Amino acid sequence: MDNKLKGGLTLAAIAVISWFYYTPYLAIQGMQNAAQERNATKLASYVDFPVVKENLKTELNGQMLQKLQGNPFAAVGVVFAGALVNTMVDVIVSPQGLAMMMRGEKPLPAASAEATDSSTQEQANEKVETKMGYDGLSQFTVKVYQRDKPDQAINLVLQRHNLVSWQLTEIRLPQ
C-alpha cells in the first residue's frame, strides 16, 4: 500500500470515529432545535415516550414511598400517590414538558406555562447550565440545572438505538 492510500484510510477512520462519538451531541442539538421551534413532532422523534413514562413513574413512586415510610397513613398515601404520579408524568413527559426541562425549568401544567412571560423565560435561560457526557458506550447523560441551584439538576438520559441514533429513555428528577 502506498502512503497516500494509508493516509486516506487513516483520515477516513478518524472521521468515522469522530462522527460516531458526536452522534449524541447531534441528537441533543436536534432536541434543542425542536424545542426552540416548538416542533412537537420533531422533538417526539428523539423520545421513547413509553419507556420514559415507565421509568419516571417508577422513580416518582419510589420517592413518594420513601417519604411515606413510618407514616401510619401510608396505605392511604400510596393510593393518592399513584394518581398524583400518573398526572405528574403526563405533564412532564410531553414535548412541552421536555422543552421546559431542556431550558432548566420545572414542567408546569399548560395553563401556568402559558402564563409565564417571555422576558422571565429569557432570564431563566441565561442562568441555565448544561453538562453532558457518556456514561458508557450506549448511554449519554445531559445534566441541566440553574446556576444558583446546582443540587436541583434534572438528568436526561439517552440510550443508543441502532448504531448512530439516540433517544431519551429516562428523566432523573432532583430528590
Rank of each mutant, 00 (worst) to 15 (best):
Q175H: 07
W166Q: 00
H161F: 10
E126Q: 15
M101P: 05
E170K: 15
Y21C: 07
V164G: 04
S18V: 06
Q36T: 08
V128R: 05
Y25C: 02
I14H: 08
D2W: 08
V89I: 03
K106H: 15
L168S: 01
D2H: 10
R38W: 01
R160K: 02
Y145I: 02
A27P: 07
N71G: 09
S138Q: 15
K143W: 05
L137E: 13
K143G: 09
I14F: 09
G30D: 04
L98Q: 02
T169N: 04
R160C: 00
E37D: 11
T87K: 12
V91W: 11
R160P: 00
P107W: 04
I171F: 00
Q146G: 04
W166F: 03
K42W: 07
K6Y: 13
L11V: 10
E105F: 00
Y134W: 13
L9V: 00
Q146H: 07
Q63G: 03
K57V: 13
R103F: 14
A34E: 02
Q152P: 01
K143D: 12
V142H: 02
M102P: 05
Q32L: 07
T23A: 03
P50S: 07
Q139D: 11
Q69A: 15
M132P: 05
Q146F: 06
A113G: 11
Q29G: 09
E37K: 10
Q69D: 14
G30P: 04
V89H: 09
G104N: 09
Y22W: 11
Y46N: 00
A115R: 13
Y145Q: 07
L98I: 14
Y22N: 15
L98H: 09
E59K: 13
L68M: 13
S165F: 04
A40Q: 07
L9N: 04
D90Q: 11
